[in-house]
Design a protein around this nucleic acid. Structure first.
Lengths: 344, 344
DNA sequence: TTGTATGCGTTATCAA
DNA sequence: TTGATAACGCATACAA
C-alpha cells in the first residue's frame, strides 16, 4: 500500500473530457441507463476505473433528494435484544441498498432529541426508533411526519400511540406467560421487579402479569412490586428489601434478564434454594440466562424476526408501495414465547 | 381550504426572500458568522424556526467537501469488546460534531470489501476498521490512503502493518500474562485454544503465551493447540478431543471468553473440578465471565479507553493538527490487565 | 443514442 | 455588514 496522494478527485466531467463525450452520457453509462450504447457504456466504465473515479453520494443525494441513509436511534447498543435487532436490520437494509446511521440515546431524552434533529438534518430517508425509558413527549419526531419521512417505532414505542409505523413485541402476553408459568409452578407469594412505567414495554408486561394473577384470583402485595431502571445495583437493592420481612416470596418475575441474573446471584449468596424455595423468571432470553447456574427461565422476543418486520415495513414505505405493509398507527405485534429452564 | 400546494421544504433562499435579504446573509447568520449584525442574526434565526427550516447536510457536504460522517467497519457489533468500544467512540465523536456510520463485516472478507467501497463513495471523512479474522490483503482500503482520508485500524490490525493509524491492545502481553498466571497457579500440562492465526490478535496472544512458557523452560504438546473460529460449537469439539486421551490437561488458555465459558460448562458436564483439576483463563473480560460458576479469570482490554485513543487520533487527524497524535504506521499499544477470579 | 442546459441547497470569494 | 455570483458533482427534461 502506498500513501502517495493523487491530485484532486475526478468527476464525471473529467471522464467526459477525457473521452470527448458529454457528462450526461457518462452519468447515464455509469448508472446503466438502457438508452446508452453498449460500446459507450463499456468505454466509460473502463475509463472511470482507470481514473480512480468514485461516485459522489453527497452530490447524488442532493440532486435526487434522497440520501439512501436510514437513521436508527436505539437506547443502548450493548443490550442483547438491540444488538441482535441491529445486526439483522442492517443486513436487510444493506441488501436493499441502504446504509444505517446508528445512534445511541443512552436512555437520555435530551440526547434522543438531539439525535433526532441531527438525523433530520442529515436528510435520512427514514428513521427507526426505540425510545428511551422516559420519553413521553414525542414532538421531536414531528418533523419527520410532516415531511412524510417514514418513521418506525419498535420495541419501546410511544405510550400514547403515534401516526407512525409501530412494531412491538407482545409484552402483554409476555407478562401473562410469566404469571401463568409461575403460578403453574406453584408460586403463591410472588414479587415483581419491573422497569419504569413510563415505558410502553413495562406498562404492558405489568398489565399482563397482573391480569394473569387476577384471573386466578390472586393479587400481589403492593410493596412487592418495584419500578426502577433494571440495573444490577437497583436489582440488589430491591432484592434486599424484598427479603427483609417475615414473609418471603416464592416467585419473582424480573422484567429483564439482568435483574433475573441478579436475583439468582442474590439467592445463591443468601443460600436460598432455586427453584425449591424461590422460582425466577426473566425477560428477553438473553444468552446469559443460559450460562448462569441455574439457567434462568425467560421470555423470548425474537429480535431478528422483529428486525425483518421493520425492514419490510421500511422498504415498502420507501418505495411508496401501493399496498402498505401495515397501517400507520396500527401496532404490529410480534409473538413471544416462554423458554423454560432450571429456575422454575 | 385552498389548493395552495404546500411547498415541501424551505431553503435559505426562501428565508432570504421572506426577509428581503440575500441567501448569503442567511447562511452566515445561521452559521453564526461574526461578520453579521446581532439584529440580523436574530431575525434570521427566528424566521428560520417559524418556517420549519432544516439545514441540508447533503448540500453543505457537497459544498464543503466534507460529510462530517465517520465510517466504522467492525466484525460483529454483538461482541462485548466491540459493543463497548462503539458506545464510547460514538459518544466522543458525537461531541466533536461527527456522526458514525457503523457497518458489520460479519467476519466476511468480501463483505468488508464491499463496505469499504460503499463508505468510500459515501465520502466519509475518516474510516475506522477492525478487520475480519481472515483479512490479509488490505488493498480495498488503498483509496482512503490515496485520497488522504484518515484511516484507523484498531484491535484487529493488518498483520503486515500499513501506512495508517494503528491502535491495538497489548495482545502479546495478554498472552504472556495468561501463561505466567497459569504456571504460577501450578499448571504443568497446558492446552491452548486460539483463533485463526490469520488475525493479528491471535498471532500475538499465541506468541506471548508460548514465550511465557518458554521462559520457564516449558513447552506445549502440539496437539493441544487448537486454531479455529472461537464459537461455542468449535470450542466443544476441541474440548472433547482434548480430553479423550490418557494425559489430561491441567490448564487451558482460551483466547476468548466464549471459549472459556464453554470450557467451564464442559468441565461441569464431565465432572472435572475447577480450579482443582483444571484451571481456565479467558480473554476480554466479557461480563459473562463474572456470572458463570465458577467465575472465570480473564484479560481486561479496556475497550472504552481504546475508543478514547481512536477518537483522539481521529479528531487530530481530521483537523490536520500540526502535531499528530501518533505517527502513521507506528502502532499505539494499549495496556491489558489480568483479572483473577475463581477458575485459577 | 447522445448532447445541452439547468438546478438540487449551500457557502466561499469577491465586491460594495 | 451585506450582496451578487459561482461552484461543489450529479442527473434529468428536453432537444437533436
Amino acid at each position: 500500500m502506498t500513501t502517495k496522494k493523487s491530485k484532486s478527485e475526478n468527476s464525471i466531467v473529467d471522464i467526459a473530457r477525457v473521452l470527448g463525450i458529454s457528462p450526461a452520457t457518462v452519468s447515464r453509462a455509469l448508472n446503466n441507463n438502457p438508452r446508452i450504447s453498449e460500446a459507450t457504456r463499456k468505454r466509460v466504465k473502463e475509463t472511470a476505473k482507470e481514473m480512480g473515479y468514485r461516485h459522489n453520494s453527497m452530490a447524488s443525494s442532493l440532486r435526487n433528494r434522497r440520501s439512501n441513509i436510514i437513521g436508527l436511534i436505539v437506547p443502548r447498543i450493548s443490550m442483547y435484544f438491540h444488538s441482535f435487532f441491529i445486526t439483522s436490520l442492517q443486513r436487510q437494509l444493506q441488501a436493499a441498498g441502504y446504509n444505517l446511521m446508528i445512534c445511541q440515546s443512552n436512555d437520555s431524552v435530551d440526547l434522543e432529541k438531539e439525535l433526532a434533529n441531527t438525523l433530520y438534518s442529515a436528510r435520512v430517508d427514514a428513521l427507526v426508533v426505540s425510545l428511551t425509558l422516559y420519553t413521553k413527549d414525542i414532538t421531536h419526531f414531528e418533523g419527520f411526519l410532516q415531511q412524510g419521512i417514514p418513521l418506525v417505532f419498535y420495541d419501546r414505542v410511544p405510550v400514547l400511540g403515534a401516526p407512525a409505523y409501530i412494531i412491538k413485541g407482545d409484552d402483554y402476553r409476555g407478562g401473562l406467560l410469566a404469571g401463568n408459568h409461575l403460578m403453574q409452578a406453584g408460586c403463591v407469594h410472588m414479587a415483581y421487579i419491573s422497569g419504569p412505567m413510563s415505558s410502553s414495554i413495562y406498562q404492558e408486561r405489568t398489565r399482563g402479569f397482573l391480569d394473569a394473577l387476577a384471573k386466578q384470583g390472586m393479587s400481589m402485595r403492593e410493596d412487592w412490586v418495584y419500578h426502577h431502571e433494571l440495573t444490577v445495583e437497583n436489582a440488589w437493592n430491591s432484592l434486599r428489601r424484598l427479603f427483609e420481612g417475615e414473609q418471603l416470596p416464592d416467585g419473582i418475575f424480573a422484567a429483564n434478564d439482568t435483574t433475573a441474573i441478579a436475583a439468582v446471584e442474590f439467592a445463591r449468596e443468601r443460600g436460598i434454594r432455586i427453584p425449591d424455595d424461590l422460582k425466577i423468571i426473566g425477560y428477553s432470553n438473553d444468552p446469559r440466562t443460559a450460562i448462569v447456574t441455574p439457567a434462568i427461565t425467560s421470555i423470548e422476543q425474537y429480535p431478528s424476526e422483529m428486525a425483518d418486520k421493520v425492514a419490510d415495513t421500511l422498504i415498502h414505505a420507501l418505495q411508496a408501495h401501493p399496498t402498505v405493509f401495515h397501517a400507520i398507527g396500527e401496532p404490529l405485534v410480534c409473538p413471544v414465547d416462554l423458554v423454560r429452564r432450571m429456575t422454575t
